[in-house]
Design a protein around this nucleic acid. Structure first.
Lengths: 214, 214
DNA sequence: CATTAACCATACGCCGGAGTATGGTGAACT
DNA sequence: AGTTCACCATACTCCGGCGTATGGTTAATG
């Protein structure tokens, strides 16, 4: 299970739990107290599994073996939880993008790695996929827009580095990003080869061949 | 407003309304009785506007200026309505696909027209877009699978006609269909050029150039 | 003209999730 | 030792959609 923003809780919430109670890792605990971050992570897990419409606070609480009473101490509403969870996810995704594409020298390899990444980082992608299904949701929409902008900027930059003129690079970036989105959609429909088969590899090769120059 | 399966109501429902009451177009009517087909069309309209999760029977009834009492005469449940509405939509879409692609001679033009179709037939595409957001829904999933299969078969056939070997044609079809799905997604995120601008046309040209040989 | 059948309205009970109120508990500090 | 505070449980109310029951209305028909 990924962690989504490991520590650095300087901005934890507005004025609530800090949960620094782990100065001494007590003996019989392992039933310590929950923090807002725990709820956010659980929310993202649930979204990944069951989609946005399944994000209800009571089922979530049941799933965590706890009651609503806890939730409404950490958050003022369901909306607030979603907001924080989305922020957490977006930050995580943004860092991820830089980490996995920032340190690859050749732009061609960067582009290829963009596709290969679909298989890795499952949770992040599952969340993303569900968020895409919830475009139109007022809280989700701006997130998707920013993420798309960021990713397409990366792609576009890579193409420019490969000597493509700006307009064409933009178009190509949009095109590739569309392919990526469409792939996620087909994946949700179980209409994509099993992701680690040779069929899949051949398809990826085909995509790379037709979409990435050189 | 499109009609989705105009007449031919031989299979109207199981044994219910036939609604042939319009033998004499009476004078003061225009407040005639509703049929199951009316509910199905209204359901599709609602899905197109607000998505699957908004398909609730009471709001739908309000929207139609009527009450639940009518609905439960025509249908046994919300699920039954959805089922019929999806059947209606799928048939309509299937006929549409053949109509708009079946009579174009050159396969290249057929492929190009596949993209241009996104702009036309708004309602159908809006419904489709919302259905995509509801992949995972047990009643929607099989529909999406069949539709994807049908469309990719068309695309694949066109590429083969252009002299492409079978495997490559399949891959290319999947690729193009992915682009199409991704485009719909970006459209829902309002991140696609305004659909009738030159920006849009240039993008389409770029797509056609890089994805369609010759 | 009375009856039947198609169609719709009204009124109900049920369920599940959102919030609220309030009280309980354990650890930490004084 | 007692108070405080962070955290959680319990028990409500409210709301909106689902499905049912039942009765009303209208048109066709014998």
């Amino acid at each position: 299970m990924l962690d989504f923003l490991p520590v650095s809780n300087q901005n934890e919430y507005i004025g609530y739990a800090v949960n620094n109670t782990k100065l001494k890792p007590l003996v019989k605990n392992e039933r310590t107290t929950l923090s807002a971050a725990d709820w956010e992570r659980a929310a993202l897990d649930l979204i990944a599994e069951a989609g946005m419409q399944a994000l209800a606070i009571e089922p979530l609480a049941r799933r965590m073996g706890i009651t609503k009473g806890s939730f409404y101490w950490h958050f003022s509403s369901r909306e607030a939880l979603l907001e924080q969870a989305l922020i957490r996810w977006e930050e995580h995704d943004s860092r991820n993008l830089n980490a996995s594409l920032g340190e690859i020298d050749h732009p061609r390899d960067r582009l290829i790695s963009f596709f290969r990444r679909v298989g890795k980082e499952k949770l992040t992608h599952e969340v993303f996929s569900e968020l895409c299904s919830a475009a139109g949701h007022p809280q989700v929409e701006p997130v998707l827009e920013r993420v798309a902008e960021r990713r397409m900027a990366h792609l576009s930059a890579a193409f420019e580095e490969m000597g493509m003129q700006v307009d064409k690079a933009r178009h190509q970036a949009r095109l590739i990003y569309s392919v990526y989105l469409g792939f996620l959609q087909l994946q949700k429909q179980q209409q994509t080869p099993s992701l680690s088969s040779e069929e899949f590899d051949k398809y990826i090769d085909h995509v790379v061949d037709t979409l990435i120059p050189n």
